[in-house]
Design a binder for these strands. Structure first.
Lengths: 111, 111
DNA sequence: CTATTGTGCATAGTGACACTAGGTGTCATG
DNA sequence: CATGACACCTAGTGTCACTATGCACAATAG
């Protein structure tokens, strides 16, 4: 039960690219940003986010760079790549297609 | 590659309930109906559909009944149950919530 | 001074689930 | 007689989000 979020599968990549494309971000910040912008709907845990970031990094869609803060701490900022931009555009299109198809089926028969 | 359909995960149950609620259907027909109504977007294979139907049946959301055609062939028609109706309503709500959240993130920053 | 909470990164294990690939059998068409 | 449509089914596989856990440091609370 309580598996309301099965829909999310397959959308995380797009979500991550969407926030990183606006400005480079580090993991923890991404979680907060997604929660903020979705008005609390998306609350990813680290165990979900970091593997996803690594996957995108490995795929060449984003690039992670360690940065040292003035206090000596380390953060890993992720930047979107050219390839990532292309994929993001494609994913936006896929999302629209999917959305359209879903709405054709799921909307209550309104006749 | 060619995994454009990762988004579909978690939506199949809703799709099946959506078509069965309008009229009882059998598996093969459901595939065709979903393809027709989505204008070709959803093309489920039997290996995807039948396990999903069995799952919904087991969960009590639909009920399958064998019917014998005049020519002696057998079809299994699925009917939605009371429980299925409730779940369908809930799933429609979840879909709207998800849709809203996704759009908040994914739409191009249009300011 | 210690405990908790927040920040920040990471991995291992699990379970759900759609997909591929295959199997059975009938019927109509070429 | 072979192909494709019809109609059902299952086993195996891979992906992926989630839970749980760990490390490390800072700030605040008690």
């Amino acid at each position: 039960m309580a598996k309301k979020h099965e829909l999310i599968k397959g959308s995380i990549d797009s979500l991550l690219l969407c926030v990183i494309v606006q400005q480079p971000m580090y993991g923890y910040q991404i979680i907060k940003e997604l929660e903020r912008r979705s008005q609390g709907y998306f609350k990813f845990k680290e165990g979900t986010l970091y593997p996803a970031l690594h996957r995108l990094d490995k795929a060449g869609l984003i690039r992670g760079e360690w940065q040292t803060l003035p206090n000596g701490r380390q953060r890993r900022y992720y930047y979107i790549t050219e390839k990532g931009l292309n994929i993001l555009a494609a994913k936006r299109g896929q999302w629209l297609d999917f959305l359209t198809a879903m709405n054709l089926i799921i909307q209550p028969a309104s006749e």
